[in-house]
Design a protein around this nucleic acid. Structure first.
Lengths: 130, 130
DNA sequence: AATAAAAATAATAATCGTTTTTATTTTTAA
DNA sequence: TTAAAAATAAAAACGATTATTATTTTTATT
């Protein structure tokens, strides 16, 4: 094993485990800096990548060009609000059948797929109708 | 109408219409520059955005952090090879049912969704098995 | 406990895709 | 033909992320 303990990595993982809002690297940085004022943004990025590689967290893409991170590594869908940018989990069972479907008529090898949803979150929808 | 004709925009659209490989802005720039040696990268970006907004082309995200562009604006799925990065169309009918499904148990408004596939393309799969 | 190699860090610069700015040139309607 | 509106080229700026480097931590071994 070539992975050594680090207080910073633990703090990052600990912070993330408390969040359901799918923070970006910068949001993690801002928060963890309260406990480690000298932590570097590079350290945050490196550890988030490390944690994602070992499968302890997952990196998610919702099409805004910024990586978000999720302590819940089970397969599930995400939604991003086009107005406020918030990212939420969707209560929709992940089918997984899509991979097999796509394998038809394809000469390569499908390893996986990504699906995300977008629209207006509850709050922004409410705000618009008032 | 606030959209004026431009030779550059026509050249960009014309070039894109000949391609099935989903070029990036930079690929468009490199090619169109053969006809317009002084065209600026900013002009390419602005016109691709303009064409995507008017629905003449579509902007696609395959999770590599780079926007690709497609002259085919019909809804269909894309695949990207993790090895060589090529982007291909998938012959898989777009269901569209997913939006409705997601609307269940959600207090906001789902406007749409994006799905893309990844893995090894035919060539890279072949190369690996030899 | 002392040591030394391996890994992690902070600080910073660099990179990459993309957007913005600005002064100039094209387009187009009058 | 003229003048306003939009488009352009060139360049700087931007934001997210990665790479570099010298220093500090961790950890296995004396």
């Amino acid at each position: 094993m070539a992975l050594k303990y680090s207080r910073q990595r633990e703090a990052i993982k600990e912070f993330l485990s408390t969040r359901k809002d799918h923070p970006t690297a910068d949001m993690v940085y801002t928060q963890v800096r309260k406990e480690f004022p000298n932590i570097s943004l590079g350290t945050v990025y490196r550890n988030l990548t490390l944690l994602a590689e070992t499968g302890e967290i997952s990196r998610i893409n919702v099409g805004d060009g910024i990586d978000h991170f999720d302590p819940d590594t089970s397969e599930h869908y995400h939604f991003q609000c086009k107005k406020c940018g918030c990212v939420q989990d969707l209560k929709l069972e992940h089918t997984g059948k899509t991979n097999e479907l796509a394998a038809m008529q394809f000469d390569g090898e499908i390893m996986g797929s990504v699906t995300y949803f977008y629209g207006l979150c509850g709050k922004c929808k409410e705000a618009r109708n008032s």
